[in-house]
Design a protein around this nucleic acid. Structure first.
Lengths: 157, 157
DNA sequence: TATTGTTATACTCTATAACTATA
DNA sequence: TATAGTTATAGAGTATAACAATA
């Protein structure tokens, strides 16, 4: 025999709460919601650093690939070349990164971090490490590594 | 002793390819790239149906929560009320969903699918099932279920 | 006085065409 | 003729303030 609690929760499910059971079985939807949550968390943590995810990833990519061409960095990050111009303008205006006309091919810019850019990136990496730690606390390190691996396999879809 | 191939690939790694090893250790970045890949895949599969992810999720949510208020559906999907108006205008203009002034509270709209909306959603669910199948083929069903679970835990960050 | 749906608006992100300077 | 960086621009998505109708 069914308890009153069960009957009540059934009524609640069908009358009070807006259910999204179907959408929550779809990887694309759940992935989108998780991504938005992580971006909001990122925004909170990076408030004082004044860096967007795109700006942060650009600094990281430049440090890991010093002297590489502007187009190559943009392409690696999946940013359209035209849209990357304003982003670099901003980083350069703030003295975080610089464009140097390449001697070999004077059409291209070799990108590099400034000392200030390196210093800010140091603080940004620390803030990012805190997000990773929060994720680790929530799902555990093995699951965090597994998640990264699974998502990378999914990216080739 | 190192082979020529190993030496060559090392040179390539440090000189030819733009590396993103650091970013690829960050959950937020990998998640973002996977999300974009899935949205592109969605766009390909839904080309003929002319439904964006937001429109698709709206149809699904209305079917699962018939007669619910417009604001409740929007809130459940994480869409701002003002932005939901144009989305519903579009679905209504195409005869897929309808707004009915509620008798109980005449400020609110009760949303429902039309027959055409139900029929289109049928086809859309089939297209979506194909994406899930593609994901399943790529990472396996246990990992797909585990991914959904992990992402949902991450969403509460 | 508060809430639902709506309008207006602004801001960010993203995509494409076309220019310039170099090659 | 092609490429790197740039400009201009348009479209989508998203966020906030304020209004009319209703509670």
């Amino acid at each position: 025999m069914r308890s009153d609690v069960e009957a009540e929760s059934e009524v609640a499910a069908s009358n009070d709460v807006t259910e999204l059971k179907e959408m929550n079985r779809i990887v694309g939807y759940v992935l989108r919601r998780a991504q938005l949550a992580l971006f909001e968390d990122f925004a909170r943590r990076f408030k004082g650093l004044d860096l967007t995810p795109a700006q942060f990833s650009t600094l990281v990519a430049i440090r890991e690939n010093p002297e590489r061409r502007q187009s190559d960095i943009a392409a690696a990050l999946g940013i359209q070349r035209p849209n990357f111009v304003a982003l670099m303008d901003n980083l350069e205006r703030r003295g975080l990164a610089e464009r140097v006309r390449s001697g070999a091919d004077r059409r291209s810019n070799a990108l590099a971090l400034t000392l200030a850019g390196t210093a800010l990136l140091e603080r940004a990496m620390a803030a990012q490490a805190e997000q990773e730690a929060a994720i680790r606390a929530r799902i555990g390190e093995p699951e965090r590594l597994r998640l990264i691996d699974t998502l990378q396999r999914l990216t080739g879809i």
